[in-house]
């Protein structure tokens, strides 16, 4: 009993401590003071100010564009890679598995630095300034591609191999069997790989800061994402007040996502239970 109380208190204490900085920021998103810790009266003004800030909105749009394009590319490449490796010979498969581990364990700064040095190196040889949206895209794909591979692989292993053969027996062409049998079977893995790629890309700072060039909505200037913009701001001073409003919005989205996921999981559990009951 005592253990139960201590355990629960401990869990909630750490949870509160982990959320404290974000919660404080959210609380101060309803006042217009420049610093956290000063309360200058309740106001909603930061929210309209956030949407009027061209700088933040540009960065936000850039971030979303990069996240979606890099996640799509990484998901396609990673899924095809996982399928291909799964049907390769054992030695080739093991080699690909091991190679996939390299960017997973590699430090982000090394990924960023090495890619950038390579782009500079090639740029010097062909006398072209390489940095643009494309180098940034490659950087982000490098970050997320191994995670797509590792989330698709277990689904391929769990798949019933006779399903594919049954499809062939029933007259499906191999490519149709791939599209109608294998892909739907591994879809949950593909989807979680995609989501993971999006979160990795949204969160990334180092690779973005190193590999970006000009382009997208930033036009002639270097591409600014939320991470790089916030970093530039907080290097000079406290988090800009508008960013506090942004935190509140992000937080609400995250909490809604958590609620959505848990409802979905509960439903799936119930389905599983009723399926087992039959």
């Amino acid at each position: 009993m005592v253990k139960k109380i201590i355990g629960r208190c401990y869990i909630y204490l750490i949870l509160i401590l982990m959320y404290l900085p974000v919660l404080v920021l959210i609380a101060f998103s309803f006042t217009e003071a420049t610093n956290v810790g000063e309360w200058t009266g309740f106001s909603f003004n930061l929210f309209p100010r956030l949407f009027q800030s061209e700088e933040i909105m540009t960065a936000l749009a850039n971030t979303v564009i990069i996240a979606i394009t890099s996640a799509l590319a990484a998901t396609i490449l990673g899924t095809l890679g996982a399928i291909g490796a799964f049907y390769s010979k054992k030695r080739a498969r093991e080699a690909i598995d091991l190679a996939t581990q390299i960017p997973v364990v590699n430090a982000e700064i090394v990924v960023a630095f090495s890619l950038t040095v390579m782009f500079v190196f090639i740029g010097n040889i062909i006398n072209v300034y390489m940095f643009s949206f494309w180098t940034l895209l490659v950087g982000h794909i490098c970050l997320s591609i191994p995670f797509v591979y590792t989330s698709v692989k277990p689904k391929l292993q769990q798949m019933d191999p006779s399903l594919y053969e049954a499809a062939l027996d029933l007259g499906a062409s191999p490519s149709k069997a791939l599209g109608k049998v294998i892909i739907p079977e591994i879809m949950p893995g593909v989807f979680s790989g995609f989501l993971l790629s999006i979160t990795l890309s949204l969160d990334d700072f180092i690779v973005t800061a190193f590999t970006r060039g000009s382009g997208l909505l930033s036009g002639e200037k270097k591409i600014e994402t939320l991470s790089t913009l916030i970093q530039a701001k907080i290097k000079k001073g406290p988090i800009p007040p508008e960013m506090r409003a942004l935190t509140t919005i992000l937080f609400v989205v995250v909490i809604l996502a958590v609620i959505g996921v848990s409802i979905y999981k509960n439903r799936q559990d119930k389905k599983e239970k009723t399926r087992r009951a039959f």
């Binding site: 869990i11 750490i14 949870l15 982990m18 959320y19 404290l20 900085p21 974000v22 404080v24 920021l25 610093n35 956290v36 810790g37 979160t199 949204l202 969160d203 990334d204 700072f205 939320l226 991470s227 916030i230 970093q231 701001k233 907080i234 406290p238 988090i239 960013m243 942004l246 935190t247 992000l250 937080f251 995250v254 909490i255 996502a257 958590v258 996921v261 848990s262």
Partner: peptide
């Protein structure tokens, strides 16, 4: 769900979270 809640902060921008921690500590 509690376990998910412990991971959920990772979905708020990392630089923003770091800034939040700094501002709180400065306070």
């Amino acid at each position: 769900v509690l376990v998910t809640l412990f991971v959920a902060p990772m979905w708020i921008n990392f630089v923003l979270r770091t800034g939040a921690t700094r501002d709180l500590l400065t306070w």
